[in-house]
């Protein structure tokens, strides 16, 4: 299934809804939305992952890029990630750097 990333910004919260398959060929689209969000001054990034069916390490690299762009203190929420996507996030230690939720609820 084709990849899609849609950005919506509200005050200092940027929400990116991801769907389809995130690999090295589609990660630049995700990265571009993160850059846009950072430019708009977002301090918090909410990633809606309910419909993201696949994520390679290229997607993890964009998370690192997010911290570099938005600052290490920026909160990244990973919301509704499917089991295998979450498996990759946990296995690579990225669960330490993001807030994992089933449904979005700002902390």
């Amino acid at each position: 299934m084709a990849f899609n990333a849609t950005l919506e910004t509200n005050n200092d919260t940027a929400t990116i809804t991801l769907s389809g398959e995130l690999d090295a060929s589609t990660a630049p689209q995700f990265k571009a939305e993160v850059e846009k969000a950072a430019t708009q001054g977002a301090k918090r990034l909410v990633l809606m992952m309910q419909d993201l069916e696949y994520m390679a390490s290229a997607g993890l690299r964009v998370l690192i890029f997010t911290k570099q762009k938005m600052g290490a203190s920026a909160d990244i929420y990973v919301v509704g990630a499917q089991e295998m996507v979450l498996d990759t996030i946990n296995k690579t230690g990225f669960n330490q750097g993001v807030i994992i939720q089933d449904e979005y609820s700002p902390l």
Partner: peptide, 18 residues
Amino acid sequence: KLNLPMAEKPMGGLGVYL
């Protein structure tokens, strides 16, 4: 690199590990 905090993780991949 698996246990490094995210802000310190290098951009280099984790693909071989996966």
